[in-house]
Design a protein around this nucleic acid. Sequence first.
DNA 1: CAGCCTGTATCTGTCGACAATGATATAACA
DNA 2: TGTTATATCATTGTCGACAGATACAGGCTG
Lengths: 224, 224
Amino acid sequence: MDPDSKAAKSSLSEDTYLAIRQALIDGSFKPGQRLSEPELALRFRTSRSPVREALLRLEHDGFLERTQNGQVRAKPLDVSDFEALYVIRANAEGLAVRLATPRLRTIDLEEMGLRLDELEKLARKGDPDGAVAAGPGFHDVIPRECGNPLLVEILGGLRARISRFRILVGSPEYEKEKIVEYRRILKALYQRSPEQAEAEMIRHVNRSATAFVAKLRRRIENQS
Amino acid sequence: MDPDSKAAKSSLSEDTYLAIRQALIDGSFKPGQRLSEPELALRFRTSRSPVREALLRLEHDGFLERTQNGQVRAKPLDVSDFEALYVIRANAEGLAVRLATPRLRTIDLEEMGLRLDELEKLARKGDPDGAVAAGPGFHDVIPRECGNPLLVEILGGLRARISRFRILVGSPEYEKEKIVEYRRILKALYQRSPEQAEAEMIRHVNRSATAFVAKLRRRIENQS
DNA sequence: CAGCCTGTATCTGTCGACAATGATATAACA
DNA sequence: TGTTATATCATTGTCGACAGATACAGGCTG
């Protein structure tokens, strides 16, 4: 069997899609930068057809935009877009926990607890990279068990689009509040209270977003 | 200026996309039916390239799915998919009203009130088609004013996917409860209460969904 | 020196072609 | 007659080519 069931069959289209996507997320392709099909085809050693498909998908994913005459550019990173994304994400993450609450097995909660302890340990040692790495792990258990594949897909798309904004502010620094919030969510899960878990999650995501926007605004002010 | 700013520039890709999409929604292409690129190219008098782009977009839109070897089929209509869609839609519509509540001008509320009166009048006269036509009108004012373009897009996609299920149960019949629910939402809007508007909207969408599922289940039982 | 016109170069949308892969129908055989 | 092997056929992924459209550079003019 396929060890990774999510893996689409390898093809030039798929590879090109993933490569361009990565370049957009890590900033190799800068916001606003124009991307021409022949150039990309040359860069990724393929022809225009796979590039075209990749660009089409990325446009649909919200990474690219088209000028009036079909030219493609990396979507600029506006604060307003970020906020629009995050409002929706907060709601979606909230919905995911709410759906997941009755479905999570005790073993899942224990896994999340362990990851949380780990995260806290790393944070105490002042290891921000480790802390960042452990954070998403916690976040992945919930969609995995929410039982709604479409929601998982939507959430994945939102998170990917949001992750692009990190090139503006660097890696996220560790926040003490995060652990407190995670513990609150976990507590609500142990109490099997969907409403409370949802409320805590939404609060968590929103606070995280406002912190990010504040950082973003500082950056923009300093640079201008 | 372009009278319809949403109108993508006319092209074979776009036309083919819209045509296939329509065929999927109105049932000309049946759930599970296989769609081959050469065949579609022939049918729409174009070459495979525009067809390929159209199929790619439709796959991303959730109308199509691919077998393991890349062949494309109209996505089957499962009750579980319907429920997954509707859970998300309920939340998204709720979010949309919540965001729209402080932004709606009185004139918008009056417009919605008028449409609602109209709807009620048609319903009393026993004109289900008219009632159905007036319903969505009410629903469109809110996203239009919610101030979040991404949310509008997501909602549009969800509604389109859901609308495909109508081929299973025929046109929706008029429901008295709908008007009551609309009036409740409108009342919350007049009171400028985002939370209440959201709660009423979610309730409305959820009830509508359960009614639909019930109808669907009856159909399936009768047919089998 | 600024603004306009024009020619050039590039890009996108679309097309047909080809090879490799996989499905399908057919025929041979137990 | 059921099963298997085979040959045929259709389909997808990828490529290069072409035409129309557009942006850009450079020269011309006031």
